[in-house]
Design a protein around this nucleic acid. Structure first.
Lengths: 207, 207, 207, 207
DNA sequence: CATGAATGAGTCTTCATTCAT
DNA sequence: GATGAATGAAGACTCATTCAT
């Protein structure tokens, strides 16, 4: 939408007390508007309105629309990434089947915690500004998974980073199918088990 | 941006040769503008200009901007889906490993034929109108894959549709990683083999 | 007003017929708004409105507000500069008193042809974008005057450019006093004679 | 920008020392912002920030932005005018050549004391509110010069006010050329002498 | 039929001013 | 008195769509 996002960093935040609440209200409002109206209709005015404040206030905290959306995306991605990192570092030395289970469980739990939000943010991630955060999150997640895989008790991976990248994509793909509403009936119910089977089989075939 | 896409169908069916050529020029132009400028800057005027005609003429063929973009997306998806359908129907009765190979080969070839285009269209697919076409393509592809799987010579799937859906997502995920530029060096070179390993392992684990 | 004027060049003008009329209407409207409301209130909407068209049309001809104002300024300055150039080249070989008379006469006639316009444009000239045109006009005028002075029949100037620059400033100053309304009663009536005396005396004192 | 400058007078007279200091800080800050950012970016918030206080405090001293800028302009103009008045009243009874020298010397010294400031304030003077102060300053200066001229030892002026007005404009013009950056190399170095020659010649030609 | 100028609603963003703390 | 967050009107600019030529 905006050709060149000048700055995506939040503005020097005012005092603090009201700030945190206001920023949170903006994030929530942004996700709601994104969810209900779509990225195209997700305007600064509408976000501010739903957050119960004036546009001017929005600009007190973010230098432009993209910066706000980027912040929302970053928060979302960071939450998920952190959960995966935690899950991965807890599985070192375990067999790959447990790794697959832990990875899928952690990722799925976070991603589906608010599936409306997850879905709405895909559009933001597609944007110029969003790609940067996705890239960073991907890098962190791949590192976490690769590190975990390198210490599997029952496998030796030639190129853990490559395996981790493929595995991650293979896990995200079917989840996206669900979020975007292209899944058949009963899909969600067995998604977790299927993903575990998928990743376990892949890890064992690659080792 | 676009208020409410009233109709997404082309205004006149391309019966005449000139119409077909014109529509094609519009599609090509739309993809170029999308690719070079992004969805936000992909305006009707710019598309018409690059297609060598006036905006007025564009509206002779499509009732609005979204209809044009939807048509471009549909064409793209249809090409890929058809290729997959062909590949799948040719593998009936084969073992799952050959099925996986054929599926990955066909899909990858089409998707990477013009990766710029594929990537640019993700943004269109994300839009209101786009989801419908993606859904339809997903359905067709899943059906094709499920039908193929049901006749595998070395496997018996409990729920071929479910397996096909997961497999499809698992294949698309890593490809998307590549298209969106989040892949590490050397990724593209081994993507095909990795995907074949992935699907084969999954099919064999599920049978 | 605008921190960095990206482009001040008019847009690729459409056909021509209507164009010329439209552009002219814009110039006239801009001067009227500038005159009646001041630079601060000289908005694109108001200009378009007074020109009897929509904002969109304004932007069909000029990429931004400053470009329009710059064009108006340039036209104004070019008219005056050209008149001075003509007057100067006609005085070569004459005595300095005739040069002073010709210079003052030509300049004053043009500048006072529409004093409202002349005054209003001072504010535009002050702007980032305007300074460039003023500089260019100054350069042309100084060159014309210096060239003329160098060929005076009754004087030999050590540094004609310097003398021309000072003379020009000395002539413009009192005219500006008039245009800005700081002049006492009867000022305009004798301005021309006073300026001729001023420049003649200066040229004779400097030769 | 500012709707209608209701009042341009400071809200409270600077009786207390602290007030004077505060107002001075505001003036200095205003000039700095004006100089560094231009009139368009010279906002109350920025001025207050640079003055080390809050916007609210700024409004304790001035009813609106224009009042502050007007005060800054007035102070600037008053300083220069006072200097000229002093110089003029010291030259009574002297010959016009000394008068010219004294006038030019005093004016130039004040105007170039901080040329950045002088230049920046031109934009303020152009504004609605500014013209009033310039007019007042012009009147005082003309009076001072005219009074001086009326008592020249070697001349008798028919209309000292007219001569003074022209002389003032003739002196200001070339200085403005310098401040606005349209002057050729070496201009500043000989400006003073040239102006003295100019005014002396004019006075002698007019007497 | 093609053209492309005109339209004007809708976006983002800024900033003077106020007022609760 | 000082503070600075909140306000919202206003401005620049874009672009889908129409319609006179």
């Amino acid at each position: 939408m905006s050709p060149v996002a000048t700055t995506l960093k939040p503005r020097k935040s005012p005092v603090q007390a009201r700030s945190t609440a206001t920023i949170d209200a903006l994030h929530v409002a942004a996700i709601q508007v994104l969810t209900r109206e779509g990225l195209g209709r997700c305007t600064t005015t509408r976000i501010a309105e739903r957050a119960g404040m004036s546009v001017g206030s929005l600009y007190q905290y973010y230098p432009n629309r993209d910066a706000l959306l980027a912040a929302v995306l970053e928060q979302h991605l960071d939450r998920i990434t952190s959960a995966v990192e935690r899950a991965c570092s807890a599985q070192r030395g375990e067999p790959v089947s447990r790794m697959a289970t832990a990875l899928v469980t952690a990722f799925l739990a976070e991603k589906l915690r608010d599936s409306r939000e997850s879905k709405a943010l895909y559009a933001v991630a597609e944007q110029r500004g969003g790609a940067r955060f996705v890239a960073r999150m991907y890098a962190r997640t791949v590192t976490a998974v690769a590190t975990m895989l390198a210490e599997a008790s029952d496998a030796r991976f030639e190129d853990p980073t490559m395996t981790a990248t493929i595995a991650l994509g293979a896990m995200v793909g079917p989840i996206r199918t669900l979020l975007e509403g292209h899944a058949p009936a009963g899909y969600e119910a067995c998604l977790k088990d299927q993903l575990i089977v998928l990743l376990t089989a892949f890890f064992q075939a690659t080792r």
